[in-house]
Simulated scan of single mutants.
Amino acid sequence: MLQFGIDQVLQQNPNWKQLRIGMITNEAAQTRDGIASRKALLDNGFNITILFSPEHGLDVTGADGHAMSDGTDTLTGLPVISLYGERLAPEAEHVKELDILLFDVPDVGSRFYTYLWTLTHVMEGATKFEKKLVVLDRPNPISGILELAEGPFLDEVNSSFIGRWEMPIRHSLTLGELALYFNETKKIAANIDVIRCKGWNRELFQPDWKLAFIPTSPAIQSFESMLLYPGLCLLEATNLSEGRGTPYSFTAIGAPWLQAERVAAMLNDISGGEFSAHAITFTPEHSKFNGQLCKAVRLEIHDRISFRPVLTGMICVKLIKTLHPEQFEWDIYPTNVNPSGKNHLDKLTGILGSEQLFDLPFAAFITAITKQTHARAWKEMVQQAILY
Rank of each mutant, 00 (worst) to 15 (best):
N47G: 12
M226A: 14
S160N: 08
G151C: 10
S276I: 11
H171I: 01
L101Q: 01
N140V: 15
G245C: 12
A92T: 04
L323H: 02
I188C: 05
A377L: 07
P139G: 02
H286S: 15
I351E: 03
R196L: 12
L352W: 14
L267D: 03
T118K: 02
R244A: 14
Y115C: 04
H66V: 11
Q327S: 09
V134F: 14
L58P: 00
E203V: 04
E166A: 15
S222H: 06
D73T: 06
I220C: 11
A63W: 13
L148V: 03
D7Q: 11
E156R: 06
Q259T: 11
R87G: 02
N140L: 06
I35V: 05
K379T: 13
P218I: 08
N191G: 12
N13Y: 09
I315D: 00
T25G: 01
L10R: 02
G151M: 14
R308V: 01
V310A: 05
P139H: 03
R32G: 14
A264M: 01
F153M: 13
K187F: 10
S37R: 05
D104P: 05
P90V: 01
W117G: 08
P106W: 07
E166R: 12
G22C: 01
A126M: 12
N47F: 12
C294R: 07
V194E: 05
R87Y: 04
K318P: 05
L299T: 05
G109A: 03
H286W: 09
V263S: 06
G313L: 03
P218N: 06
D59K: 08
R111K: 07
M1E: 14
T31W: 01
S241E: 02
M123F: 07
L267N: 13
T72G: 09
Q30H: 10
N183M: 09
R38G: 00
